[in-house]
């Protein structure tokens, strides 16, 4: 996974909506595709395009926001379904950071597993950022080492779970780390099989 340290003057797009659930980030009908096909075109599809395919004028399709790397949304971004395809849609579109006052738990961990930063800011800071972006600001820098968003006259602090921050900064993949503990896992599982004999599915089936 590609490390993420700093997004320098990335195109930033306001998404002044609360509760943007993962069904909206990627509608279910697009999820049959293999990832290689690229999921970027599905991002927020039904908020961006009407039934006839005509663009509805969502900020994301504003030519001034082309190539957006940062989205700023309202609270509870990514609630709902566990579909990691929602993160694929963002990442394949080119987004590396979503800024919001809160995130769905599963979405946030999926994001980190794909190198996408879920940056938590206060409600007031989210509103300030959205207002500035709607007022014509089009670029933000995101510094993950300093946990700071630059672009307004004063930098805005964000928080992110320190473990996730380390993972993102280094581009680490959990799997390699876990496999380094293979002996500990094996020993634990052997002892547990004695401790909780009922935990295995009954073999009578």
């Amino acid at each position: 996974m590609e490390p993420l340290r700093r997004l320098d003057r990335a195109v930033a797009c306001p998404l002044p909506l609360a509760n943007v659930d993962t069904d909206q980030i990627i509608p279910a009908r697009f999820m049959k595709q293999p990832r290689q096909a690229g999921y970027g075109g599905f991002l927020l599809h039904d908020l961006r395009f009407g039934p006839d395919g005509a663009a509805l004028g969502l900020s994301l399709d504003d030519p001034a926001r082309a190539g957006a790397g940062v989205l700023v949304a309202r609270r509870n971004f990514g609630g709902g379904s566990s579909r990691e395809a929602a993160v694929y849609a963002l990442v394949d579109f080119g987004v590396r950071c979503v800024v919001a006052p809160s995130f769905g738990d599963i979405f946030a961990s999926n994001a980190v597993n794909n190198g996408l930063l879920p940056a938590v800011v206060s409600e007031a800071d989210a509103e300030r950022l959205i207002a500035a972006l709607e007022g014509g600001l089009d670029r933000l820098s995101v510094d993950l080492e300093a946990c700071r968003i630059e672009g307004l006259p004063e930098p805005v602090s964000f928080s992110v779970d320190p473990v996730w921050r380390t993972k993102l900064l280094n581009g680490w993949d959990d799997l390699d780390l876990t496999l380094s503990h293979a002996d500990a896992i094996r020993a634990w599982a052997e002892a547990d099989a004695e401790r909780r004999r009922w935990a295995r599915p009954s073999s009578s089936c």
Binding site: R83, V87, D174, L175
Partner: peptide, 14 residues
Amino acid sequence: GIGASEVAHVLTTQ
């Protein structure tokens, strides 16, 4: 519930 990366992690390591 978990995402696909976590599903792959559980499949590989339990």
